[in-house]
Design a protein around this nucleic acid. Structure first.
Lengths: 355, 355
DNA sequence: GTGAAAGCGCTAACAA
DNA sequence: TTGTTAGCGCTTTCAC
């Protein structure tokens, strides 16, 4: 008992084990790693002593020698958004299996970008996983890391000028499925509500346009809107488009969060969803699990995004060839899409053929 | 240009700077840290060269010498629950200000507890922040860390046998406020729905009981229920208590998530909330932002919990005295509590006085 | 099979 | 004010 108390004071080193075993550090090292030849007897003895001393290798020392840290930086825009928490969980799951520590980098301002560039650099992380359009100048820092030789894996899109594997999501298919679902329900005047810029939204919009075109509908730019300031612009929208003589009957909103906001506003103006307007979102956020009406949306494999990015990064560290990954998306049908009554469809068709 | 390309290949070391400045490593070290005396001219020169070389200290080397890692382990049961994501965000915010890296430890199974005990130990973290009742044997590992001298800060309660500052939440006051709010609305038969074990729930229940007693009501054990298996037991509950001749009119459910589930079930059985039953939850989860009816609940300062735990831990590392913190809670009145119609109150009072 | 020795980058005690 | 030196714990040649 007294012995175990005293040994607990300082962590055991290879030298401690070597002393007790009556061998050299080098031999202990070999025995512990199963590298090189060590007599079976000595090996067993060393292993036993190591266990008794509760030895665990000092990664700082090993890393100093090997220029490794067994640390990976994980960069996200905002961990308190369920989307990123899910992605992080996937990465974390993979890294822990491989003995790597995950340094969480939450980039919520220009200052945090600076901070984490410093922290990751000083810690000498073995690699960086960068998720989504972080902003705040992070892209520039990431490029600097890449230029210095730090391996990088990206999620969602390739940061310009940065080499490394990318986990893509089939955004375009998502947009396509969303619009298709609405078209299949008989809708013809389908809005796209969201920004028409940035790689991700642009892809989603492309998919939406493609579905419309395949259905013989020319996408109208008038039906593509975006709210910068909801309080001001939502009124304009309701009084304008929605109140017009040929109001849209459906909307594809490439973000669940925006879809929820939109539906809420709509409801407070007396509209019903999906009765008056059908809506399809994007993301399938777990934080909207309780939103009523339950959102019909496009599911992204969030945990997988993080997991595969980590796998690719680690594979790269081991010198293996890596290829970009394209993750599939799927339509989750819930309660925000209604079939357009035949009457309305007929009316609308009449309009078109008649015009 | 050529020079900058070549210098980018390897990270600059103190020696590199020393060579260029024509001084020794020690002098560079002193200049960079502002420790000890260095001639102003040499200092400026060294600083300039360091900047040109884009030098950043190698924490592995420094740590090896100083027995520090500038790494903190943050242990949570499940990062994909918004509650823990919020707590982690608070910790992260504090740590990054101080240049520490946060290693995220998501303990979702016995195996992850093992993994992280290994990872944190090998990385030689400077401290550990442990949040809530993690389970999966983590407590035992935490104790081992503490025994070995790793500083620990805890959130929510003290792990038995572990020394270190604790950030408490006034759970009891929360339970009290919840029950009080229901009492003030005229309710008398108020259920407690949740487990009656574990420090946290027990405290919340104590507060609830205290409020009832202060209102002259003796808490009935019959009104304290817990669902282990919702599918089976909810039916029993509806047919039993709710269908009885003196059904409860309100419930304090010390967990927003459980409250949401409960309300959903209730609604699907035809009950209305708050009309037929008032409900107060606990946590004020951001993931229930969209839950309708919006939950009346007890707000915990989640980010603050993480932030203060980090502050306490770092203060301890600097050798400063630390004291436990007790965080306040507050009632957030939203839409799940209704006043009991006077009639019912009168009826009930009659029952009691008449009995 | 095993040991001796050098060195990863940094810090700090001691000398000059 | 500055340099020399030793050493943190581990890995890895190179001898033996």
């Amino acid at each position: 008992m007294a012995a175990s108390v005293s040994t607990a004071m300082r962590k055991a080193t290879l030298q401690d084990i070597a002393d007790l075993a009556g061998v050299s550090r080098a031999t202990v090292d070999r025995a512990l790693h199963g590298r090189g030849r060590v007599m079976e007897g000595t090996r067993q003895n060393i292993l036993r002593i190591a266990r008794e001393l509760n030895h665990s290798p000092n990664l700082r020392a090993r890393g100093l020698k090997l220029s490794q840290s067994f640390l990976i930086g994980m960069v996200v825009p905002n961990i308190s958004k369920s989307f990123y928490a899910d992605v992080v969980e996937g990465t974390e799951e993979c890294l822990k299996e491989h003995g790597y520590g995950l340094i969480l980098c939450n980039i919520v301002a220009r200052q945090s970008a600076e901070r984490y560039q410093t922290i990751l650099r000083m810690q000498g992380v073995d690699g960086i996983i960068s998720c989504a359009e972080t902003g705040y100048g992070w892209e520039r820092h990431l490029r600097a890391f890449a230029d210095e030789g730090t391996p990088v894996a990206m999620i969602n899109y390739r940061v310009r000028g940065v080499d490394g594997p990318v986990v893509y999501v089939n955004q375009r298919k998502g947009g396509y499925l969303a619009a298709k679902c609405l078209l299949d329900a008989g809708h013809r005047r389908i809005m796209f509500i969201g920004r028409s810029k940035g790689y991700i939204n642009l892809e989603r919009k492309q998919g939406y346009r493609q579905a419309l075109k395949e259905a013989g509908i020319e996408p109208e730019e008038q039906l593509s809107i975006s709210f910068e300031n909801w309080d001001e612009e939502f009124d304009l929208f309701v009084n304008g488009l929605m109140g017009g003589k040929e109001p849209p009957t459906a909307a594809f909103i490439p973000s669940d969060l925006a879809a929820a906001r939109f539906i809420n506003r709509l409801q407070s103006r007396g509209y019903r969803v999906p009765d008056d307007l059908s809506v399809v979102g994007f993301d399938d956020l777990s934080s909207l699990e309780w939103f009523i009406p339950r959102l019909t949306t496009i599911r992204q494999q969030k945990k997988e995004m993080g997991f595969y990015a980590a796998e690719l990064l680690l594979a790269g560290l081991k010198g293996r060839e890596t290829k970009d990954i394209l993750l599939d998306v799927s339509l989750v049908e819930r309660h925000t899409v209604a079939s357009l009554p035949e009457r309305k469809i007929a009316d609308f068709k009449g309009d078109v053929t008649g015009g």
